[in-house]
Design a protein around this nucleic acid. Structure first.
Length: 586
RNA sequence: GCCCCCUUAGCUCAGCGGUAGAGCAACUGAUUUGUAAUCAGUAGGUCGGCGGUUCAAAUCCGUCAGGGGGCUCCA
């Protein structure tokens, strides 16, 4: 029997236990919905990372969010009268007959694809559903539920298929856990980088350019601080910086293969009656720089980085704040090396990636190695060599990783990096991709020790992914409380009254001279109000100046995190201290 | 692109067939302030655009644009 074991053995606290719990909840949801919408056709209803969903064809009478309450009510009523989940093995013929009689072509389609002797139904009370399980023993433990949202979802994820209504929900063994989850959702909403972007006056979006961020002065300070830091780091790590044009001839994109494979995502234009395209990627430009010289094997690896502004046509429906935009700046680099150098290059890249993520407190990470897909170019030997190099690099650095077999690009294997933020949400940031295709397409060469020309391997890599998206992730990770070195405004100088604006100006001059980013609040408000506003703007350091300070040439420092005050700090000491604390990490 | 929902003052939102509202912000005045909101006043919107229904539309319908939640794909 075993079908009820995961939850009962491992309980709510294991991912397996939750999956079983939510899978069973999906059945109850389906039962609740069927009782309210008898014509609805069920399709699939799996558990997901946070809860579960059920894709349903409502045949034109889909519920709206106004109906959530009554569905939840029905759900809880059903769960309150626990039924056993009973597994029944059925023949394909029986199964088909059952759903054909109901006119449910989706289940029929699913059953047709299942192996003859592995078709099972699960029965709970009067509700029956095609399902491989496993399930809870009975529905008793399910005590709280919340319908989260409705969404359109294509049958089998294919836009040519009919669109179903996906009902997202989450359930828990008790109300307290649901309340906790709701609280977490509210916390996530509070950290939403789109709200923070407005609140902190960093960037904005407008209908004049959907998907194209407008960066405000404070946003630029942040963006520049991040780029300056990354640039310095890469220059210290054996990279050179290049910049390639944003618009290049269509011919180039035909040669690179982008025109053939990526055209839908590209923007095109015309110059002097010749077709051009706006670059969606930086690699072709990089190869052109590579080709301007003859390279000796002694020059390799050659590491060229570019903070490349790329434009990609994304579907209007997927644009989401800074997370998904139509123009963004990749922290891109291309490393040209010999096949023998792959491993050592990957090792140093893995170290670099770790340093970069540590810098921002992304300590929890996942690494995925994607290997040769069915459709690939290049020789099997080259693939084997490359995959081995990636694996042994990962092993020698001692980083745990998972393999996604067959998930590599057709032109080479890759390593992807995913981090978790403070709310344990997952974000893909960096990627390292080997490329056996582009060097050939562009006829790249280096002269080997044998005096003969050879084709170099190209490694594409991004650590942050894009600066725009990374800033979005970082804002949500930190709830807008950026580290001092990245803060657009590092110090807010608050005169106790207008009488001390002059001294505040003196303080600001000293700070500015030390490259500290500061502002003065000259408004005619009480100190408490100024503090409140400064805190809301998440300024890391607040300097209060009044009679005492002006007289003794000091400042009072209030720290954002501890909310404590240190009074009477000599100005020069304060400037020095803040200047040191605001140094970007190495 | 497709499905559902949303768009009212700079921001956050109320109003949901019968002459446009609140709080904050802005401006003016009073106040000259000591660690998370001083008081009073003024100004600000053809209720996203365009059509339609109606005696009457922010409110109902259509359409377009933008935004949100998803689907697909990815950074």
């Amino acid at each position: 029997m075993g079908h009820a074991t995961e939850f009962h053995l491992k309980g709510w606290d294991s991912p397996e236990g939750k999956f079983v719990f939510w899978h069973s909840s999906a059945h109850i949801l389906a039962e609740a919905i069927l009782s309210l919408y008898p014509h609805a056709k069920l399709t699939i209803g799996p558990p997901i990372e946070n809860g579960f969903y059920y894709d349903i064809d409502f045949e034109g009478e889909a519920p709206s969010s106004d109906d959530f309450a009554r569905i939840e009510e029905k759900f809880l009523a059903l769960a309150a009268q626990p039924e056993y989940f009973i597994r029944k093995k059925v023949s394909q013929q029986e199964a088909l007959a059952y759903y054909e009689q109901q006119g449910n072509r989706y289940k029929v389609e699913l059953i047709r694809e299942l192996p003859e002797n592995e078709i099972t139904f699960y029965e709970s009370g009067s509700f029956v559903d095609l399902c491989k399980g496993p399930h809870l023993w009975h529905s008793g433990p399910i005590r709280a539920v919340k319908i989260l949202s409705l969404a359109g979802a294509y049958w089998r994820g294919d836009s040519r298929n009919p669109q179903l209504t996906r009902v997202y929900a989450i359930s828990f063994p008790d109300q307290a856990l649901l309340d906790e989850y709701i609280h977490l959702m509210e916390e996530a909403a509070r950290r939403d980088h789109r709200h923070l972007g407005k609140q902190l006056d960093l960037f904005s979006f407008h209908e004049e350019g959907p998907g194209f961020p407008f960066w405000h002065p404070k946003g630029m300070r942040l963006l520049n601080a991040l780029q300056d830091w990354m640039r310095a780091k890469l220059l210290r790590n054996g990279y050179e910086e290049i910049r390639t044009p944003i618009i290049l001839t269509q011919q180039l994109w035909e040669r690179s293969g982008h025109y053939e494979n990526y055209r839908e995502n590209m923007y095109f234009t015309e110059i002097d009656e010749q077709p051009y395209a706006v670059k969606p990627m930086n690699c072709p430009g990089s190869t052109i720089v590579y080709r301007t010289q003859i390279h000796s094997y002694r020059d390799l690896p050659l590491r060229l980085f570019e903070f490349g502004l790329v434009h990609r046509h994304e579907l209007s429906g997927v644009l989401t704040g800074l997370f998904r935009v139509r123009a963004f700046t990749q922290d891109d680099a291309h490393i040209y090396c010999t096949p023998e150098q792959i491993e050592s290059e990957i090792i140093s890249l893995l170290r670099l990636v770790s340093e970069v993520y540590d810098t921002f407190g992304f300590t929890e990470r996942e690494i995925y190695l994607s290997t040769r897909p069915e459709k690939y170019i290049g020789s099997l030997e080259l693939w084997a060599q490359a995959e081995n190099a990636l694996q042994s690099a990962l092993q020698s650095v001692g980083l745990p990783y998972q393999i996604n077999p067959g998930d590599g690009a057709f032109y080479g294997p890759k390593i992807d990096f995913i981090v978790r933020d403070t709310l344990r949400r997952r974000w893909q940031l960096g990627t390292i991709q080997l490329d056996f295709s582009m060097p050939k397409r562009f006829g790249l060469e280096y002269i080997g020790s044998d005096g003969q020309p050879h084709t170099p391997v190209m490694i594409h890599r991004a650590l942050l992914g894009s600066f725009e998206r990374f800033i979005g992730v970082l804002l949500e990770h930190t709830a807008g409380e950026l580290p001092l070195w990245l803060s657009p405004v590092q110090v807010a100088i608050l005169p106790v009254s207008e009488k001390f604006i002059a001294y505040a100006g003196h303080v600001a001059d000293q700070m500015t001279a030390a490259n500290i980013r500061c502002i003065i609040d000259k408004s005619d408000e009480k100190l408490g109000k100024k503090i409140r506003l400064a805190e809301q703007q998440k300024f890391p350091v607040i300097c209060v100046v009044g009679a005492k300070e002006a007289e003794t040439h000091t400042v009072s420092i209030r720290d954002r995190r501890s909310r404590t005050q240190t009074e009477g700090v000599p100005l020069s000491e304060a400037v020095n201290h803040i200047r040191m604390a605001a140094q970007p990490p190495v």
